[in-house]
């Protein structure tokens, strides 16, 4: 900006023209004209991104206004103005009606169960990466990596499709078990209320384990080889090296991811649970996100669903702030 100093630019010349109305073209005016120019260009830059800021407002901030729905008995046919204002009725219902409370309790249990199973298995990608790193043949290591990360890139619909092909009553597994004489009647793997949480955990591991390990593989590659050499000279064996060198170096990454997932523990997403949901497993598969969909879109309790979604969003933001504070204290830097 300051490169033009001294040489009169057209902008300055233009700005100087109206200055004739004033008594004298004093130096302050000259400096002011340059400020005008730079202010214009800084406003121009802003105007260039304005359309995108409008999009952000429309799709991220404007929907927050929809939270008022939680305080109305919203009927889409009547619109917001025609709907009745009910204050905190929906929030009170959450804790006053026994059936509602029982339902919410079950949903919360499912949500937290899925999240805690996720935490409990969060070290698996670390071990996966550490063990894969011990594979010496590069072609084998790369092939394993490609194949195990592939499931991460297919949709949950396809995962369900695969689950259906393999585990439905006429699917591959039942057919194999039947042919080998182990069973006479097909086992219902999908249409059952047994082991729903476990099944969901295994599917998300199938989809995400290999991908989750990539970050740790990269972290391992960044460890200083001198550390390994000196450990080996000191007589450390393979497992000692893994335990005392590799593992501790992966912990910072691991802790950040764990803290973030704790902050996200109410947000399981609905897609996985939606596609696997059926009349048999509904009680154990409904996590908060799915429940909001089920009662809101399918059940038409739009206001109740908004109230629950709103509470969930607020608690999630609080959790994130808390998680960030913890991380700040532990590591000195924030994670968000």
């Amino acid at each position: 900006m300051s490169l033009t100093q001294g040489t009169p630019t057209t902008a300055e010349a233009n700005a100087a023209a109206p200055a004739k109305l004033r008594p004298a073209p004093d130096p302050r005016r000259r400096r002011g004209s340059r400020e005008v120019r730079s202010a214009q260009s800084s406003k121009t830059l802003f105007l260039m991104i304005l359309p995108f800021l409008v999009l952000i407002f429309l799709f991220s901030y404007l929907p927050l206004a929809g939270w008022v729905t939680a305080f109305y008995d919203y009927r889409p046919a009547l619109g917001m103005s025609g709907s009745e204002f009910v204050g905190f009725q929906w929030f009170e219902m959450l804790v006053s009606s026994p059936t509602q409370m029982q339902q919410i309790g079950q949903v919360l249990t499912n949500t937290l169960a899925m999240s805690f199973l996720g935490f409990a298995t969060s070290l698996l990608p670390v071990f996966f990466a550490m063990l894969l790193n011990e594979i010496r043949a590069p072609w084998f290591r790369n092939s394993v990596q490609t194949l195990t990360t592939l499931p991460n890139f297919i949709s949950w619909v396809l995962v369900y499709m695969i689950a259906f092909s393999l585990f439905s009553t006429s699917g591959l597994v039942n057919s194999v078990l039947h042919d080998s004489g182990l069973i006479t009647t097909p086992i219902k793997f999908l249409d059952t209320d047994q082991h729903v949480w476990l099944a969901m955990l295994l599917w998300s591991l199938w989809k995400g384990l290999g991908w989750g390990a990539i970050l740790y593989l990269a972290a391992i590659a960044a460890i200083d080889p001198a550390l390994y050499e000196s450990a080996r000279i000191d007589g450390a064996g393979r497992f000692q090296i893994m335990r005392y060198i590799t593992f501790p170096h992966l912990m910072p990454t691991y802790v950040v991811l764990l803290v973030l997932s704790i902050a996200n523990m109410l947000n399981n997403g609905m897609e996985q649970y939606y596609v696997f949901q059926n009349a048999f497993n509904k009680e154990y598969i409904q996590v908060l996100d799915l429940y909001v969909y089920n009662i809101g879109i399918t059940g038409n309790s739009l206001s109740m669903a908004t109230a629950i979604g709103m509470l969930k969003s607020l608690i999630s933001v609080l959790l994130l702030v808390a998680a960030n504070a913890v991380a700040k204290r532990a590591r000195g830097t924030s994670i968000i």
Binding site: F46, I49, L53, I56, L58, F59, S60, Y61, L62, P63, L64, A65, G66, W67, T69, M270, D289, V292, Y293, G296, I297, L302, A305, T306, G309, M310, K312, S313, S316, V317, L320, I336
Partner: peptide, 21 residues
């Protein structure tokens, strides 16, 4: 503007408000 943009990663209004929007 940058902060307002990045902040949107950390919250969502929820399903029904999005639908209404």
């Amino acid at each position: 503007w940058y902060r307002l943009t990045i902040f949107t990663m950390y919250f969502s209004a929820g399903l029904i408000p999005m639908y209404i929007t």
